[in-house]
Amino acid sequence: MSKAFVRESEVDEDEELVEVQSFPGFKNYMTPAGHRALREEFERLVKVERPQLVETVAWAASNGDRSENGDYIYGKRRLREIDRRLRYLTKRLESAVVVDPREQTQTDRVFFGATVTVRDLDTETEETWQIVGVDEADAGKGKVSWIAPLARGLLKAELGEVVRIPTPGGVRELEIVDIRYEASS
């Protein structure tokens, strides 16, 4: 098979990721916990993973023929991945606007960082979501990005208000039953 079909691209993919997640005109809001998580990942990559990998690659390079040296080939590839991630994290941390939800004064409305409990008026089920930054979003943990349709529908709504959220399955009507501003985990 031709190498053209199997060779991995060495194009700077983090540039593409940053453009996708840094929408023009939008700020890179994040909670203190999200900022701390990115900073910890950056520190771990710089102080632990990358130095260990550089040592492994240097050892593998000293073994001779690099063309069939799995440790060397894998190590160089992983180094590129780590360097790409470090550039991405650097850009995201530099552009971060950290917003502490506990400092919110208008607690009867939904703003960034709020933990919102809603009741679906069709099914009478309740869901709780925290509105967080793009890099922190994790639906499995109840964290939704502030630019997601759900969050955008909830932002600036008041306690007791019914909001209409368009979804692929149709419009959902959600009543806001609780708004909390607390430290995220």
Score class of each variant (00 low, 15 high):
Leu174Pro: 03
Ser9Phe: 00
Glu15His: 11
Pro166Phe: 05
Gln52Met: 12
Leu155Cys: 07
Val54His: 00
Ala96Gly: 01
Pro166Trp: 01
Glu158Pro: 00
Ala137Asn: 06
Ile176Leu: 04
Ile82Ser: 04
Glu55Leu: 02
Asp14Tyr: 15
Asp100Ile: 09
Ser67Met: 11
His35Asn: 13
Arg80Glu: 15
Glu173Thr: 06
Phe112Met: 10
Ile147Gly: 00
Glu124Tyr: 04
Leu93His: 04
Glu124Met: 07
Thr105Ala: 13
Val6Tyr: 12
Ala114Tyr: 03
Glu13Asn: 09
Ile179Arg: 01
Arg39Asp: 13
Thr128Ile: 08
Leu155Gly: 04
Val46Trp: 01
Arg39Pro: 03
Val18Gly: 04
Val97Tyr: 06
Arg92Glu: 09
Ile147Ala: 01
Ala37Tyr: 08
Val132Lys: 03
Gly170Asn: 02
Tyr29Pro: 06
Glu10Asn: 12
Phe42Ala: 10
Gly160Glu: 00
Asp135Leu: 08
Trp59Gly: 00
Thr123Leu: 06
Val118Thr: 09
Arg39Leu: 13
Phe5Pro: 01
Lys27Gln: 13
Glu103Phe: 07
Glu126Ile: 04
Gly133Phe: 05
Thr90Trp: 07
Ala137Arg: 00
Asp65His: 07
Arg77Lys: 13
Val97Gly: 05
Tyr72Pro: 08
Leu38Asp: 04
Glu158Asn: 02
Arg180Pro: 01
His35Gln: 11
Arg80Thr: 15
Val48Ser: 11
Thr56Trp: 00
Ile82Leu: 09
Glu43Ile: 15
Thr123Ser: 14
Asp108Ala: 10
Glu55Asn: 00
Gly25Cys: 06
Trp129Met: 02
Thr117Cys: 05
Lys3Gln: 08
Arg119Thr: 14
Met1Trp: 09
Gly70Asp: 08
Gly160Pro: 00
Lys91Pro: 06
Glu175Phe: 00
Val97Ala: 11
Leu45Trp: 02
Thr105Glu: 15
Arg84Met: 14
Val163Leu: 03
Asp83Thr: 08
Ala139Val: 15
Val6Pro: 01
Ile131Asp: 04
Leu53Lys: 02
Ala137Gln: 10
Tyr29Asp: 08
Gln21Ser: 14
Asp120Gln: 01
Pro168Ser: 05
Thr117Glu: 06
Thr115Ser: 11
Asp138Gly: 11
Asp83Leu: 10
Leu38Glu: 07
Val98His: 02
Ala37Arg: 13
Arg180Ser: 05
Ala157Ser: 15
Gly153Val: 11
Lys143Tyr: 12
Asp138Ala: 14
Glu49Thr: 14
Ser184Pro: 14
Glu8Ala: 15
Asn63His: 14
Lys3Val: 11
Val99Asn: 08
Val48Ile: 15
Met30Gln: 11
Asn69Val: 09
Leu154Gly: 11
Gln130Gly: 14
Asp83Ala: 13
Glu15Pro: 03
Thr123Pro: 02
Leu89Tyr: 06
Leu150Asp: 07
Arg36Asp: 15
Thr56Leu: 10
Glu81Arg: 15
